[in-house]
Amino acid sequence: MSNPFLARDTGFLRICGHRGHNVSAPENTFAAFRAAKDLGASSLEIDTVLTADNEIVVIHDLLVDRTSNGTGAVKDMSLADIQGLDAGAWYDPKFAGARIPTLAETIALAHELDMVLEVEIKEKVHLDRYLTALKAAVADPDDLARVMMISFDHANLKVVKAAIPGIRTGGIVHEKFPDPLAVARISDLDELCIDLDVFDPVGAEQLHAAGIAIRCHAYSPRTWDRARKSGLNWDETLPQYLRAGLIDTLSGDDVGWLKDFVSASGCER
């Protein structure tokens, strides 16, 4: 069966909007997701937390304070409470009225836009209830096929993989490991999500040989400017990795910038 997260199966490099195209629209909203699609993304990285009435909603923080006009913990609020908040005006008045979407709504949007989802588990309080809600959200095989569940907590991903047959899981890593393939195998992962700063091409080759996908997170233009000033040579190394086919998905905050970088590097495929 073709794996939509592996470039060797799809025939192309996926560009992924980190929380959508969040440099021009409020993160984790439909506005940011549609902006990412319009700029050429075929993948979205989103964050998810559980409400008091066991609905999975798309928000990065356990609190609604930073990205809405509300205050308090998601765990103490119903879905109606959450979707009654304004999740756009904090970013720019033109986005006033934007809602915090549910995972189910975002999966439906992914079908509409023909995108795949990297769904990060941010829930920290009621993981058992989150898992029950997740089973319901991806019960349709067509929905399941578009989803990669990701987390820093690889042990939790192993629980998810055991509980939901056919689900794909990806472990986020911000450090180098002596044996990244062993890291993936011990938790039965389908993907490693690796920051560019710690990307290891030898490890990437080993992961691909084992059929494990790789999402490389390439940050934002502002981070790149700081990296250049610091003497880091990402402008040279990232095109090398792309041309070698070591990356299946390239993610970042600015989708347009990512697309332009890939094009200028002669790495479009």
Rank of each mutant, 00 (worst) to 15 (best):
E55Q: 14
A31V: 02
L44Y: 02
S220Q: 00
A110I: 06
I214S: 00
K75C: 14
P239E: 12
I121A: 08
L117N: 01
D92F: 07
L127Q: 15
S263A: 15
V49C: 11
A218W: 11
W90H: 09
L85K: 08
R19W: 01
D140V: 12
H21S: 05
I15T: 07
A98L: 07
N3R: 00
I167E: 13
L207M: 02
G266C: 13
M115W: 03
A136M: 13
V23T: 10
L6N: 02
G72E: 08
E27R: 03
R168N: 06
A213N: 04
D153Q: 09
T132V: 15
S265M: 08
H174C: 12
T51D: 11
A41D: 04
A184Q: 02
N69E: 07
A98W: 06
P93G: 06
A136H: 14
L131E: 11
T102C: 05
G211V: 04
T51S: 12
K161Q: 10
A25R: 04
D153A: 10
P180R: 07
D47W: 00
A73T: 12
P165S: 15
L181I: 03
E120Y: 00
H60V: 01
E205I: 07
I186S: 14
A204P: 05
G170A: 06
C267A: 14
D197E: 15
R99G: 07
A80T: 13
M115Q: 11
V138D: 14
E120R: 03
R66F: 06
P239C: 12
M149Q: 08
L39N: 05
V159S: 14
M148T: 04
P93V: 06
N3P: 01
I167K: 14
T102P: 06
A96P: 03
L85I: 08
D65W: 09
L127R: 13
E123F: 05
I15K: 04
V202Y: 09
T102M: 06
A36H: 01
C216I: 02
A137Q: 13
N22R: 12
T169F: 08
V159H: 15
V262R: 03
K259Y: 02
S263N: 12
L131K: 12
V119F: 01
D197W: 12
H60S: 00
S151Y: 06
D53V: 14
A96V: 03
G20N: 01
M148Y: 06
P221L: 01
I150N: 01
I167F: 13
A31I: 04
P178C: 04
A155M: 15
A73V: 14
Y241L: 08
I186Y: 13
H217L: 08
F5R: 00
L127P: 09
G245L: 01
A36F: 02
G166S: 15
K94N: 04
D128M: 12
A213I: 04
V159W: 13
E120P: 00
P178E: 03
A145I: 11
Y91I: 05
D76G: 13
T29N: 04
A136K: 15
K122L: 02
K176D: 15
V64I: 10
R228P: 04
L127Y: 10
S220C: 01
A108Y: 07
I82T: 08
F12D: 06
P141D: 15
G84F: 05
D92M: 07
I247H: 04
P178A: 05
H111L: 09
Q240G: 14
N156S: 13
E105P: 09
V119G: 03
A41F: 03
I167N: 12
A244D: 09
D76K: 14
F30K: 05
A204V: 06
A244E: 09
I172C: 07
I59S: 06
